[in-house]
């Protein structure tokens, strides 16, 4: 499904080299590691937001190394949601569909579907300001899933949440796993994220990924 083949990333004084990784279809992988170890860098290069210096990134046996982020069909849930502040919830959820020029009815029904799936149906016409951390994460998740991506990248999606909200998100992510059979890479520094959600746990130590 997704594989990194000996990729190297050099960024100022920071360097990652010969990173390889394989994620099978339908597998929910949690990548663990300390802050600053380069987890986010790897995730960003998978999404196409960061150039890699060597190696290859394959998605479904297609080489996506030099593809634009827009063409990779990878859903991205950034740290703390990073919702579009100039749009309401509906605007955020429908963004990728409007870019793809879906017709209005199809967009509306997909947005409603996402609203129901993620338990945010009652928020659709709300502004972004004033939403809780959990609500923001759900919307960010919905926005990343809207266009039926092949693969989902989540960067510490739960780290900014309080304990009860995190538990709610656990059950949401578990049900999404079951219903949508999403293939995902979830970055985290929390052991419990891995224990509750992961089909496979990877660790980053000394600039290398180990299973």
């Amino acid at each position: 499904m997704l594989s990194l083949k000996n990729i190297s990333i050099i960024q100022g004084n920071f360097q990652l080299s010969n990173i390889s990784l394989d994620i099978a279809k339908g597998e929910y992988t949690v990548l663990m590691g300390k802050t600053g170890c380069g987890k986010t860098t790897i995730l960003e290069s998978i999404c196409g937001l960061r150039k890699i210096n060597s190696g290859a990134i394959m998605l479904n046996d297609q080489d996506i190394t030099s593809m634009k982020p827009a063409e990779r069909c990878i859903g991205y849930v950034p740290q703390e949601g990073t919702l579009f502040s100039s749009m309401d919830v509906r605007g955020n959820l429908s963004f990728s569909l409007r870019i793809r020029k879906w017709d209005k009815e199809r967009v509306a029904s997909r947005v409603n579907e996402l609203g129901e799936l993620l338990g945010i149906g009652h928020l659709l016409d709300r502004n972004i300001t004033g939403l809780s951390g959990g609500e923001r994460q759900r919307i960010a998740l919905g926005r990343g899933l809207a266009f039926y991506p092949e693969f989902l990248c989540m960067d510490e999606p739960l780290s900014a949440l309080d304990e009860p909200t995190r538990d709610e998100m656990y059950s949401l992510l578990q049900s999404l796993k079951k219903e949508l059979k999403i293939t995902a890479l979830h970055i985290s520094h929390s052991m419990s994220d891995a224990e509750v959600l992961a089909d496979k746990v990877l660790k980053m130590e000394n600039n290398q990924i180990i299973e």
Partner: peptide
């Protein structure tokens, strides 16, 4: 303005111009 929102837009299918 943090460029992160634009990054997200790129992954959602936008060109830099969009």
């Amino acid at each position: 303005i943090d460029s992160r929102q634009e990054d997200v837009a790129l992954t959602l299918g936008c060109s830099k111009g969009q």
